[in-house]
């Protein structure tokens, strides 16, 4: 599973303070810790409260790149913030994210092509998050068709069905798992699938176990990637084991260590 570490986000107090004080060590440690715990990429978000998001994002990118060689998922709602960050990323980056609205796709698909980046696309539009499976699938098909028309490599496209908290939209989670399969048959090559995992347990008292079980269920439904907390060792162990049981890696007695040595 391609795990994008979620901990460098201005929503968290330690990150917010580090940005304010330009304290590089906090950010560099977070980058290193996530990498050492098995993250495949790092999400970077300067947070909704940032008054100078372009500067803050650029500082975060430069700081992280001092500590880690992992690809970065540039996470912002503002195209200009993402564009300026892409200018300075050393490795192939991931744009996080576009919606299914055509005007946003227009901006972000072009941007991904220009900077040879991957693109996360949420299956929601101006009307909000769809309440059923078919509407999500329809938006997903629209995103893929748009990307194909622009000759964007579908291998670099991640579709996010948008996971809602279990205490808000309980009936939807089963449908979300089902739609992961259906996204895969939209095109050949198939788009990749991604979830923002921690959302599923937002506002609950048992966050870790809910995240862990949902991620293993999603893995069994073919999920390719998740934005998650790689420092949650139980979560990482669960996903490594899930992939082992799905025959994605060869068993050996030390399979947990072996996976982390990759």
């Amino acid at each position: 599973m391609f795990i994008i570490g979620e901990l460098i986000n201005g929503m968290y107090k330690n990150v917010r303070e580090a940005i304010a004080k330009k304290d590089e060590s906090v950010i560099m440690n977070l980058a290193k810790e996530q990498e050492n715990s098995g993250a495949s990429a790092l999400d970077v978000n300067c947070g909704p409260l940032s008054k100078v998001p372009v500067e803050d994002m650029k500082w975060l990118v430069l700081t992280i790149q001092k500590a880690s060689k992992l690809p970065l998922a540039i996470d912002s709602t503002k195209p200009e913030v993402i564009r300026q960050a892409l200018e300075i990323t050393k490795n192939k980056a991931i744009i996080n994210s576009t919606s299914a609205d055509e005007e946003r796709l227009e901006i972000y698909v072009d941007m991904a092509l220009k900077y040879n980046a991957s693109l996360i696309a949420l299956t929601m539009d101006k009307k909000g998050v769809p309440q059923d499976k078919d509407a999500r699938l329809e938006l997903a098909a629209g995103i893929v068709a748009f990307a194909q028309a622009k000759n964007f490599d579908i291998n670099n496209l991640y579709l996010d069905p948008i996971v809602l908290p279990v205490n808000v939209a309980q009936p939807q989670l089963k449908l979300l798992l089902e739609v992961l399969h259906e996204f895969k048959i939209i095109s050949e090559p198939a788009p990749k699938t991604i979830v923002g995992l921690s959302n599923v347990s937002q506002g609950t008292c048992q966050r870790s176990i809910i995240n862990r079980v949902f991620l293993t269920m999603a893995a069994a439904h073919g999920l390719d990637a998740a934005i998650a907390d790689p420092l949650d060792k139980d979560l990482m162990d669960a996903v490594i084991t899930a992939e082992l049981l799905l025959n994605k890696n060869i068993y050996c007695d030390s399979f947990l260590t072996a996976y982390r040595k990759k």
Binding site: I250, Y251, C252, D253, S254, T257, A258, K261
Partner: peptide, 13 residues
């Protein structure tokens, strides 16, 4: 035995 092959390489490394 591929599982033992992998395990032994881990032990040796």
């Amino acid at each position: 035995d591929i599982n033992i092959a992998k395990q032994l390489n881990i032990l040796i490394s």
